[in-house]
Nucleic acid binder design. Structure first.
Lengths: 247, 247
DNA sequence: AAGCAATGGTTCCACGCCATACCTTATGGC
DNA sequence: GCCATAAGGTATGGCGTGGAACCATTGCTT
C-alpha cells in the first residue's frame, strides 16, 4: 500500500470539511428568517427589513427571497403590505394554528445532537458573560442590559421565553465578538426548539430570575469570575432540565 | 409614521441575518481545502480524500470540486495521480514560492476583526479545556492528547506551529461538542494567518510549552477550573503578542 | 391636487452549479 | 497475464439563482 503516509490517525478532517451550504439558498434563507421570528427579534406586528435590504443581508437574490416570503405568507406567518411604509409584517401566531407547527417542531428537533448543543451553548454563554464583565460596560451598554433584565421581570408567562432569549442575546452582543454573538443566536434558536418540547416550570422560572439578577450585577461590577460562575450554574440548570426530559 | 412599532432598538437582527453563503461554492470549497492544508491536517506528501468523497463532504458537485483542485494544481500546491491508490497529494511548499503567497496572506488578513477573533478564540479554547477536564478522558483519548503534546516537544522550529495547532484541535475534538470543534478549526485558521504576520519568538515558545504541559496535566486530572485558568493565560499570551504587533 | 419616495410585484435572460453517465489510467490479486 | 477495483478525466442537459429593469401601490410632502 504505497502512498499511505501511515495515517491511522483519527479523522481530523471532519471538523473542517463540512458542507459549504446547509441546503440551497432558499432553505437557508427560510431557516434564518424563521430564526428571527422564533427568537422574537421582531415582535408580533413588527416589520421585517425591506425585501431589497433583506435579500442583500442574506446574500441571496430578491427573486429567491420572495419565494421564501411567499411560503411564509402562505402559512400565515407574515403579511405583505405594499406602498410607502409597507413591508413584510410578522403576524401573531394563531393559537394552536392548524398549520401543524407541532410536527414542524418535532421534525426540526429530531436530528439535533442535544449534548453538542448544550455544551456549546454553555461555552458561549459563559464566555460572553466573562468577556462582558472583563472589559467593562459604558453607560449605554449597561442601560441596554438593565432594560433587557427588567423586561424579563414583568413578562407575562407566554412572553417569558422570548424576553429571556433577548436578555441573553443582548449579553452576547455586548461581548465584543460579533462571531460569538452570531454563533450564540444560532445555538439559542436550537435551544429554544428543545425547550419548546418540555413543560415550562414556574419554579425554575423564579430560580432563573434570581440568577439573571445576580448575573447582571456581577457583569456590571466587572466581576468576571463571578459572572462566569453564575452563568455556568444557570446553564447547568437548563441543561439538567433538558437532559431529564429528553432522555 | 405608522407601523413603526417603536423600534429605535439596537440592531438585533445583524447577528442572525448573515449571508447564507460566504461566496460561491467554488470559493468556499477552495477556502476549506486551503484550511485543511494550512492547519496541517494533511502533512506534506499526504493524500486528500478522493474527489467523490471530498465533493460529498463539501456538499458540492465533483465538477465544481475539480475546478478548485485545478487551481490548486496550477499553483503547485497539490498534485493529482491517476489509477488505483492514486489521488490528490499535498506537495511540500516550495520555500518562498514564486506563487506570491505573501500577498495572498496579506489579502486574507486584511479584513479580519482581530479583537473578534482573539476573543472568540479564547472563549472556545477555555470552554474546550473546561469540558475536557470536566467529563474525564478515557484511556484512548488521554493517549491522543499525550501524543499530540509529545509531538510539540520534539518539533523542529519550522513545524512547531503545525503541531501546536494539532494539539489544540485535538483538545477541541475531545470536548464532546462537534460544533465547538468545527468553530475552533475555523477560528484557528484565522489565528494562524495572524501569527504568520508576526515574528516567532523562541522565548514565547518555551513559555507556551510549559503551559501546554500544565494544561494537559490539569485536563487529565479532571481539574476543570485549573485547566480553564491555564488556558486563559495561554490565550492571553498569544493575544497580547498579536495585539502588540498588529496595532 | 400633484409629485415624490419607498415599498412590494413581475418579467426576462444568462450563468453557475449539479447530477449522471461514461472513459482512462494504474495497481493488486487471481 | 487477465481483470476487477479504485482512482482521476470528460461530456451533457437541466434547474436554481442572480441581476437588472420595470410596473403597481401607498402615503407623506409641498
Amino acid at each position: 500500500m504505497p502512498g499511505d503516509a501511515g495515517d491511522t490517525a483519527p479523522d481530523r478532517l471532519t471538523p473542517v470539511l463540512r458542507p459549504v451550504r446547509a441546503g440551497n439558498g432558499f432553505e437557508e434563507a427560510l431557516e434564518q428568517i424563521l430564526q428571527v421570528v422564533r427568537l422574537g427579534l421582531v415582535p408580533d406586528g413588527g416589520r421585517l427589513p425591506a425585501e431589497r435590504d433583506l435579500a442583500e443581508r442574506l446574500g441571496i437574490s430578491r427573486v429567491t427571497l420572495r419565494e421564501v416570503l411567499k411560503v411564509l405568507q402562505d402559512q400565515g406567518l407574515v403579511e405583505s403590505r405594499r406602498g410607502r411604509y409597507g413591508g413584510t409584517f410578522v403576524l401573531p401566531r394563531p393559537r394552536g394554528g392548524a398549520a401543524g407547527g407541532e410536527d414542524e417542531l418535532r421534525r426540526r428537533v429530531a436530528g439535533v445532537d442535544v449534548e453538542d448543543v448544550l455544551r456549546f451553548r454553555e461555552v458561549l454563554e459563559v464566555g460572553a458573560a466573562g468577556l462582558c464583565a472583563a472589559h467593562g460596560t459604558d453607560g449605554e451598554r449597561a442601560g441596554r442590559l438593565r432594560a433587557a433584565l427588567a423586561a424579563t421581570r414583568d413578562a407575562p408567562l407566554a412572553d417569558y421565553r422570548r424576553r429571556d432569549t433577548l436578555l441573553h442575546l443582548t449579553l452576547a452582543g455586548l461581548s465584543g465578538s460579533p462571531t460569538l454573538a452570531a454563533q450564540y443566536a444560532a445555538v439559542r434558536a436550537t435551544v429554544n426548539d428543545l425547550l419548546d418540547c418540555i413543560p415550562l416550570l414556574v419554579r425554575n422560572l423564579e430560580h432563573s430570575q434570581r440568577q439573571h439578577d445576580a448575573l447582571v450585577e456581577a457583569v456590571l461590577d466587572g466581576d468576571a469570575d463571578g459572572a462566569r460562575e453564575i452563568m455556568r450554574e444557570h446553564c447547568a440548570g437548563t441543561a439538567a432540565l433538558l437532559r431529564g426530559f429528553l432522555t
